[in-house]
Structures are given as structure tokens and as C-alpha cells.
């Protein structure tokens, strides 16, 4: 009895260790695949340039001492600070527009049993399928009519063309998971349809809305063509455009600063992503199942 009691946790523990070892072993290739390029970018970002071009030398370590020069260059010799601020501002406004339009739309499509709702919904999703290379020329006209050419506000107007369809779909799925009963109870309590939406449905829709915001944010960061076509002034560019157009001069790649510039926005976004990952997961689950 006593012996068994003492032995059990031990075997449990070794079983746990074995299980962990197996999981880590399984994860290792994935981690290498996903992280090595990032690690490599990080190394490049703090390498001296002369250390990059040593023929035949180990590329992932330092022969010359690491340096912050590339970061310094990024902040003092380019408009990187402006690019970050622009990216933040663009993402904020794009998310705001997206939420303000796709929350009501998603709700209406999911809950209000409207005639033609299905077709309208499909119509909205279909617009996500139209690629940017088809749209940017006609949109240039729109941007110029609004007098937004060469201002980051032009991107605030344009990016919702892909975030709204995506997030409407996402939120529509999400709203379907909210039980009808809560809403009906609220309406019985004297709230109108709008009251029920605001007071009851929205508060339980946090994960869905957060997911939509995260998507708006990351989708906005993946654009290149629109920003290239509409913004040519250095201090108006978002980060991806600024980094890709101003750190390649002629045919010279400023590798270190390019990598630094990418990591400085990519890594914080990854952290934020992770903070909300659980919410995010319940967000997409809610949207897709049901």
C-alpha cells in the first residue's frame, strides 16, 4: 500500500517527462521552421554590415561585435517613427470603421431573419475575392476625389474594402452562437431590438469583436500595392511600405535596418496577438461552428 503510493507519483512523473519529451520533439521542426528565419532576421539586424558579406564564414554568428547601428539608423536617418505612428493610426481607424460597420451588419445578417439576407451576405463576402491589382486603378480616382492622395488617410478609406467583408463574415458566425433566449429576455424586459443588441448581445461578444480587431490590424499590415500606389511621401507611409521602399536604395539593400524595421513591428504585434489568443480562438470557433 505504502510502496504503491510512493511509486505511483514517480511513474506518473516519468510518464509526464516522456510525454513532454515527445511533444517537444514533435514541436522542434515546427519551431525551427517558424522561428529560424525570424532568428536570422534578428541576427542580421544587429550585425555590422561588413559581417554580412564574409565569404564562406558562418552566417549566423558574429565575427565582428554586434551593433545597434542599424536600429540607430532606422530611428535617426529614416522616418521610421512616423511610419510606426502612421501604421498605428491607420490600424486604429481601419479597425474602428470595420467594427462600426461589420458588427451591425453581422448582427443583422445573423439574427434578424431578413429577406435576401443570405444573398446580401454572400454579396459582401464575394467582394473579398476581388484582388487589389484589379481595384487599385479605379480606387486611385476615388482617393483623389476625396483629396487624400499622398496621405495615410487614403489607406484608412481603402483598407476596409477587405476588412469589412472578412469581419462581417466572422461576426455573423459569432452572433449566431449567442443564444436567442438572452436577447428575448432583454426585449421582454422592455429593451427594444437596439437596446437588446447594445446591452445584452454586445457585452457577450467580446471575443468576436477582439478577433475582428486583430484581423483588421494584421490584414492592414499585409498590404503593399495600395500603399505604394496612393502614398509616396516619406512621412506618410505605413511601416511595410516605408521599410520596403526606403531601405532599398537603388539596388542596395540595407539588410540590417530592413530586418530591424520588420521585427520592431512584427514582434509586438505577435505579443498582442498572444495576449488575446485564447479569446481569438473562441472568437473564430464561435464564428465557424454553429
Amino acid at each position: 500500500m505504502i510502496a504503491a503510493g510512493a511509486g505511483h507519483p514517480r511513474s506518473q512523473r516519468s510518464k509526464e517527462i516522456r510525454r513532454h519529451a515527445l511533444i517537444y520533439l514533435g514541436l522542434a521542426p515546427f519551431l525551427v521552421l517558424a522561428v529560424f528565419p525570424v532568428f536570422w532576421m534578428a541576427i542580421t539586424a544587429i550585425k555590422q554590415d561588413s559581417d554580412l558579406y564574409l565569404v564562406g564564414a558562418a552566417p549566423f554568428w558574429f565575427r565582428l561585435p554586434p551593433t545597434w547601428k542599424n536600429f540607430d539608423f532606422l530611428f535617426n536617418n529614416t522616418f521610421y517613427k512616423d511610419w510606426i505612428i502612421n501604421t498605428m493610426a491607420i490600424s486604429f481607424w481601419v479597425s474602428a470603421i470595420t467594427i462600426l460597420t461589420s458588427v451591425p451588419a453581422g448582427y443583422a445578417l445573423a439574427r434578424l431573419r431578413l429577406p435576401f439576407a443570405e444573398n446580401l451576405g454572400i454579396g459582401i463576402f464575394m467582394t473579398y475575392l476581388v484582388p487589389a491589382i484589379i481595384l487599385f486603378i479605379p480606387l486611385a480616382r476615388v482617393v483623389s476625389t476625396l483629396d487624400l492622395q499622398d496621405s495615410w488617410w487614403s489607406l484608412v478609406v481603402v483598407y476596409p474594402t477587405f476588412t469589412i467583408p472578412f469581419c462581417t463574415w466572422l461576426l455573423m458566425g459569432f452572433f449566431k452562437t449567442v443564444p436567442f433566449e438572452i436577447e428575448e429576455a432583454a426585449m421582454v424586459d422592455g429593451c427594444g431590438q437596439l437596446g437588446a443588441l447594445c446591452r445584452v448581445v454586445l457585452p457577450v461578444s467580446g471575443p468576436g469583436i477582439i478577433t475582428a480587431i486583430i484581423f483588421s490590424f494584421t490584414l492592414s499590415m499585409q498590404d503593399f500595392l495600395y500603399s505604394l500606389a496612393f502614398v509616396s511621401i516619406s512621412d506618410q507611409k505605413p511601416v511595410p511600405l516605408g521599410v520596403a521602399t526606403e531601405l532599398i536604395r537603388g539596388d542596395i539593400y540595407f539588410w540590417g535596418s530592413l530586418m530591424a524595421g520588420a521585427l520592431l513591428v512584427g514582434v509586438p504585434v505577435a505579443i498582442v496577438y498572444n495576449l488575446f489568443l485564447d479569446k481569438f480562438i473562441s472568437g473564430i470557433t464561435g464564428a465557424a461552428i454553429k
Binding site: M221, A244, A262, V269
Partner: peptide, 19 residues
């Protein structure tokens, strides 16, 4: 692990391609 794995997705595509 999860945190590390999402980095490729959050880097701006135009720049990670240059990497």
C-alpha cells in the same frame, strides 16, 4: 511556443519576403 509560432504571420509580408 504558441507566441513564437505566430511571428511569421505578424511580420509585414513585403519585408519578410526580403528576408
Amino acid at each position: 511556443v504558441r507566441a513564437l509560432l505566430v511571428i511569421p504571420f505578424t511580420l509585414p509580408i513585403a519585408v519578410s519576403v526580403l528576408g
